[in-house]
């Protein structure tokens, strides 16, 4: 029937990954199967990307320049892609889909770090958040490509190329804002200060990362700290800004027990899916 209209249902408009890149659908149909702990680890990785993508998605049509609408949208799209892989893989342990996990988990079941939950603030705060997260993600995926879990390694390999670009984007804006006007310099410094209390949580060896790192599946979060912080320090020095002197916020355990922002993010993200449980979209 739809053939008569010039296109077919199989000619799906919603296949977004280009070229030879794997898709979450392929990952599912390839029959990869995560065990319980690996799935819990994949949730940690997926939730960070999902929540950050959700935050960045809000910038589209609100960015300082058209090119930035595109750039921030592109970064959000990459992160959403990473989230879809990790959540799809996590779901295999419980017979759940990426959407079951994204839309029907409760606030306390998410494992996102508070850094990615922070509101967008001004452009400088968004860039500060991007800077920290992309340095962290790059170091993480650089190591995760050697995971003994083939699926995690493959996802990391795909994500690594993309977060390298995110790192470059944030780094260039750091230099530009720091070296631009007095106002932009102050705002960039303030942006760093605003997110700094939440950096440490990225390096917390929460359950089940320590056990999985022991078997070569996961990268131990605390082992990322040195390289990430050195990289950030180097760039912040180069920009002529100060490394923030802000103590880590208590409660760096990704549980959500110490977050107010997560609830608002999920309320908005999940509202439609939850109003129609069981529906297909």
């Amino acid at each position: 029937m739809s053939e008569a209209l010039g296109f077919t249902a199989a000619d799906s408009a919603t296949r977004i990954s280009a070229g030879e890149a794997i898709t979450p659908e392929e990952l599912r149909s390839a029959g990869a199967q995560a065990d319980e702990d690996t799935a819990r680890y994949a949730l940690i990785l997926g939730d960070d990307s999902l929540i950050l993508a959700q935050r960045l998605g809000h910038w589209i049509s609100r960015a300082p320049e058209l090119e930035e609408d595109i750039a921030l949208g592109n970064i959000a799209l990459d992160l959403l892609g990473h989230a879809r892989f990790f959540l799809t893989y996590a779901g295999t342990a419980w017979g759940k889909t990426e959407d079951d996990l994204a839309y029907f988990r409760e606030e306390d079941e998410f494992r996102s770090a508070r850094l990615v939950e922070q509101d967008n603030g001004d452009f400088a705060k968004t860039i500060a958040r991007q800077l920290v997260f992309s340095f962290y993600a790059h170091e993480l995926y650089r190591r995760l490509v050697d995971s003994s879990d083939q699926t995690l390694a493959a996802i990391a390999d795909k994500a690594l190329k993309e977060v390298a670009y995110h790192q470059d984007h944030a780094g260039q804006w750091l230099l530009r804002l720091a070296g631009g006007t007095d106002e932009s310099r102050q705002r960039m410094q303030a942006g760093l200060e605003a997110v700094w209390a939440y950096v440490e949580e990225l390096f917390a060896d929460v359950e089940p990362t320590a056990e999985l790192a022991g078997t070569g599946v996961a990268v131990l979060p605390s082992s990322l700290r040195e390289n990430v912080m050195n990289g950030l320090r180097h760039l912040i020095d180069q920009a002529g800004l100060e490394m923030p002197d802000v103590k880590a916020a208590f409660g760096a355990d990704r549980t959500g027990r110490f977050s107010e922002q997560r609830g608002h993010i999920l309320t908005e993200m999940q509202v439609l899916a939850r109003r129609h449980p069981g529906a297909t979209w």
Binding site: L80, A102, Y103
Partner: peptide, 10 residues
């Protein structure tokens, strides 16, 4: 921010 599935959101 409210798209009902991750694929639709993407």
């Amino acid at each position: 921010t409210r798209a009902p599935s991750l694929k639709r959101k993407a």
